[in-house]
Design a protein around this nucleic acid. Structure first.
Length: 342
DNA sequence: AATGAAGTCAACCGCCTTCTA
DNA sequence: ATAGAAGGCGGTTGACTTCAT
């Protein structure tokens, strides 16, 4: 059962959009709204594929797009988000109003990837997290095929990408590296911003996708039943991640997150003000003490190195541009587990 | 000034999941 | 239950621009 092409390609125009085409598309969407991309070109009188129209609109014509250079704040945010989310460009873009996933992806590939590698050229910390142990096991929502499938699909195509090992071939190198990893490394490789610089493989990335698509970080959801409350799920996931010895997290009616145990617990206080974690966590982080939570798969010897930058970075993310605005607790929680924008 | 290398970025490709008939 | 449509995603391409020699 083959899939029909998204559009009849014969006779359709390709390549750069002209000003006239832009105007037609913008006018049509202004009158009829977004959506129905397949029929849009015909209705609007454009000799373009529907997907092409959608892409053009999303990446270029939308009114809420920010034009111009990426600011330093945005750049920093991209780096940090990438360290946490990996190549989930749409998720990253969701944190940068007015920026598109394509823009961020391009910016990363051209500006930031090597810089991030330089920064991270030290001894990285790799944390294995088995997402299959998380509630629901997780399953992909949208997005791209697993790299394994992609590789298989590409196998017969004799791509000329070998020629591009230098420069543009950065991701290729990462891919090659991934595919050479032993099979037993099925767990997620979670990297801090200072880790895995060579491959630019961020937290939860492709390796396990090859073996277990359900472990993809593109989105994890319950296998059955209706959509769960992302906040509740995040808390559940966090508890699962932290393991049986972990402090149990509870979400109050106001959705603030609290530790039900009295000692050694994780305290995320929505009133903690700017600057990130407070209370026990802040104390522990400040002292660089090793947390006694039982992090499944976490090499505890490196926990001290990992959590400090991770938490610090995230606290920083909460205050884009150095402001002191409070990010809603549920957003923080969902972000932490890549549940944002689901 | 000419030219080749390297960088940038808009657009395309092919896959996915979800929805619907 | 199945197939196809639709929308969405990340990887890749290639035209164009900038830089170095």
């Amino acid at each position: 059962m083959g899939r029909a092409p998204c559009c009849e390609k014969v006779g359709l125009k390709r390549g750069r959009w002209t000003k006239e085409e832009d105007e037609i598309l913008a006018r049509y969407i202004k009158e009829h709204g977004e959506g129905a991309w397949r029929s849009l070109p015909k209705n609007a009188g454009l000799l373009r594929c529907g997907k092409s129209c959608r892409l053009r609109w999303i990446n270029y014509l939308r009114a809420d797009l920010k034009r111009g250079n990426i600011s330093e704040e945005e750049e920093e945010m991209i780096i940090k988000l990438h360290a946490t989310l990996g190549n989930r460009w749409s998720l990253i873009a969701g944190h940068l109003p007015g920026r598109t996933d394509n823009e961020i992806k391009n910016y990363w590939n051209s500006h930031l990837s090597r810089r991030a590698a330089d920064i991270a050229d030290g001894d990285g910390v790799v944390v294995d997290v088995d997402l299959s142990k998380l509630p629901g096991g997780g399953k992909r929502r949208g997005g791209r095929a697993s790299r394994g499938i992609m590789a298989a699909a590409r196998a017969g195509k004799e791509k000329k990408t070998k020629e591009k090992e230098k420069g543009k071939g950065r991701n290729k190198a990462a891919e090659a590296e991934q595919q050479q990893k032993p099979k037993e490394e099925e767990d997620m490789a979670v990297s801090t911003p200072s880790s895995h610089s060579q491959s630019h493989q961020p937290c939860a990335t492709a390796k396990s996708e090859e073996q277990a698509p359900q472990a993809s970080a593109s989105g994890v959801t319950s296998d059955d039943g209706p959509e769960e409350d992302p906040v509740a799920l995040s808390v559940e996931m966090m508890s699962a991640l932290l393991g049986p010895r972990s402090p149990k997290l509870e979400v109050g009616q106001d959705r603030s997150c609290m530790d039900s145990s009295d000692s050694g617990g994780l305290s995320i206080d929505s009133e903690s003000g700017p600057g990130g974690p407070t209370g026990d966590v802040a104390q522990e982080l400040g002292d660089k003490a090793i947390m006694d939570w039982d992090l499944m798969g976490l090499d505890i010897s490196t926990a001290d190195d990992m959590w400090d930058p991770l938490v610090w970075d995230y606290a920083d993310l909460m205050i884009p541009g150095g402001g002191h605005q409070q990010q809603p607790q549920e957003e923080v929680m969902s972000d932490f587990f890549f549940l944002d924008n689901m």
